[in-house]
Each structure stands twice: as C-alpha cells, then as structure tokens.
Design a protein around this nucleic acid. Structure first.
Lengths: 171, 171
DNA sequence: CCGGACCGGTTGCAAAATCGAAGTGGTTTC
DNA sequence: GAAACCACTTCGATTTTGCAACCGGTCCGG
C-alpha cells in the first residue's frame, strides 16, 4: 500500500487520515445522517468527486475507521458506519473545530456546532461519543441526544440567516 | 492560491495545514530545537525533501503560522518561529498524539512525549504553550520547562532502547 | 410491466502535487 | 585557500487529484 515514514504517533495519525478528504468524510458521518455512497456524495458541501469518495471509503474501511454493511431492504445500498476507532476522533474534531473557529474565517452557520462542542468540553464529547456508539455500533441509547442539540442549533442559525430557506415554514 | 471549499471550521482548518507535511514541520518546530532550513531538514525523521520543505515553510508563513527572521550573526541563516496561531495548535497535537498512541503502532521511544502530554491534560498544555511563547515570541519564561521534561523523557526512552546510541556516554 | 429515478461505483483524461537527486551561488569556518 | 555549510532551485519521473461522463443493475409509480 504505502510505506511507513516513521513511528511517531502524530505522523502515523497523519498517515491514517491526513489527506484532504478523509477527515471531511468522517465529519459528515459524525455530524450528518447519511451513510450511503449517494447520500454522502449529495450531502457533502465541499463537493467531493465520486471517484475520490469511493477510494476514501475503501481506505478508511481498510484502516479500520469505517465498517461497511449491506442494507437488508435494498440490494444496492450499503451503509458506512463509524467504528470505535473513528468515534474516538470526536475530541480531535472538537479541538480542530475550535481552532478553526478562532483562526479561520468560518461562516457563522457552520460554526455553531463547533462552538457548542468546544464549550461543552470533554464531558459533552463523551456524551456525543456514547450517542455515536448507539447510532453506529448498536450500543444502548444515552438519555439525551447531543446530535439533536447540534442539529437544532444549526437549523436555528440557518433560519436566522435565511429565514425562508431551511427553517420551519409557517403558512 | 487556491479556492475555498466551504466555510466549515473543520474544513478550513484542514485547508490550512491538511497536507502530508505541514503538521510534521510544525511538530518539529514545537518539540525540536531547530529553526533553520538545514536544521529542520536534517532533524526531520520522516525524510522530507528540500523542495517540499521550502514550499511548506513559505505556505505556513503566508498563512500566518510561522514567522521568518534573519539571524543577526549569520547572513545566510533564517529562523522560523511559531506564531501564536501555531502555538494554539498544542492541544490538537496532544489529542492527535493521544489517538495515535492508542490506535496506531507507534514506536515506544517516540510515544513517550505523546503520553506525557496526554496525561498532563489541558493544564500541562497551557504550561507548554507558555513556554513556546517564551521560546518563539519572547514572552517571559515560565517557572518550569515542559519542553525539558519531554526531552529528557525521550532521551531516557532512547537510552533504554539502545544504551550506546543516544544516551549520555560515560567513559 | 415499463420508463425514469436512483444505486454504487468505474473509466479516461488533464492538471496538480510529490518525490528524489543533483545543482547553484554565496558565506563562514578552519 | 579549501572545505563545509547555507537556503534554497531545478529537473524529470511518478503519484495523486479533479472533473465529467458513463455503466449495469435495482427500485418505484403509474
């Protein structure tokens, strides 16, 4: 596959998902609700190409970050779910999002989730990880849903920005 | 330079240093003691090529992560120092190292520093950041040196592994 | 039972990034 | 004065990425 540059943990972490797309895909699986190829392709706001997505899904699965399973109700669909190894990247996602929040010109709507995760700290991260274990590994459901809180905060931010586009419509 | 894929903070963070070498260079500047081109080139255990190093130093400087200054005592030498923006990546380095520790086959000697940083938690990270501000930005020196502790732990691990190679020599 | 939307990709090609090795012009050290 | 050191640059080969079109199969509404 490829040769190992060094035994440094930071380097090896980088070699596992240190390209321009792997972490984006993991982010979509963590914070979004699509697990199929088409779903991930369509949902992705950065516009990943289908050949790259196919390749990365293979690589992430080979590296033990994703698990692929058939959809019982649809012969063509496959679900890509996070493994424990990937779920343990939640703190890294939170810390990365926090840094991006402070040092890049991130858009307000997309920053809402990062801000909640950062403010929540390790305790919230653990809750979120528990929920991901429920959603992706079949573990028992936690009491309250972090993912729902993140989602509704995001939708509220979208509604603030463009009231007619994505928010709840009253007519 | 390049177009921005999206306003997501995680994506923007990735766009800032999400290639195979930028973070490695930042790691070397954080944990090593070389700041010149030759120094970084020679010290780097992954064997970065000189053209790539030159390009990345330019890019990191353009992105505000590094600052370049002339060496007063040597007309050809230039020092590359971390900016505050880069120093605030310490938590991310610590978290990444921690993940690599648990989920990759990192070598024992190179894992020692990552383990100390992870065990130390946010409090130690802050101390380390204070020290980096001293070393790279001219801030006042902190009481105790985290960097020295990391370094001596690393040397002790090296000595344990190959007593004759890098450890203190008594003759 | 048929047409169109949907499924997970693959293919072909161009552009960009990376790599490894060698070289450059100048400086400092011995 | 020579050798080592300095920060790069240049070159050509290889690899990776990006883009758009295409593919055969499946599902769903009428």
């Amino acid at each position: 596959m490829h040769r190992r540059r060094s035994g440094c943990p930071i380097n090896l972490t980088l070699e596992t998902f240190g390209d321009r797309w792997s972490l984006i895909i993991l982010r979509d699986l963590m914070f979004g609700h699509n697990r199929t190829f088409r779903g991930l392709l369509g949902e992705n706001i950065e516009g990943i190409a289908s050949n790259i997505l196919a390749d990365r899904l293979k690589r992430l699965t080979a590296n033990g970050l994703l698990s692929r399973s058939a959809d019982p109700g649809h012969k063509q669909k496959f679900h890509h779910t996070l493994t424990e190894k990937a779920i343990e990247l939640v703190p890294m996602m939170a810390v990365m999002g926090g840094w991006g929040l402070r040092h890049t010109s991130a858009s307000e709507e997309l920053s809402v989730r990062a801000r909640i995760l950062e403010d929540g700290g390790p305790q919230l991260w653990d809750e979120f990880m528990q929920e991901l274990r429920h959603l992706h590994l079949g573990a028992p459901a936690p009491k309250r849903s972090v993912s729902a809180a993140l989602q509704s905060a995001y939708e509220a931010a979208m509604a603030r920005r463009r009231p007619s586009a994505h928010g709840p419509v009253h007519r």
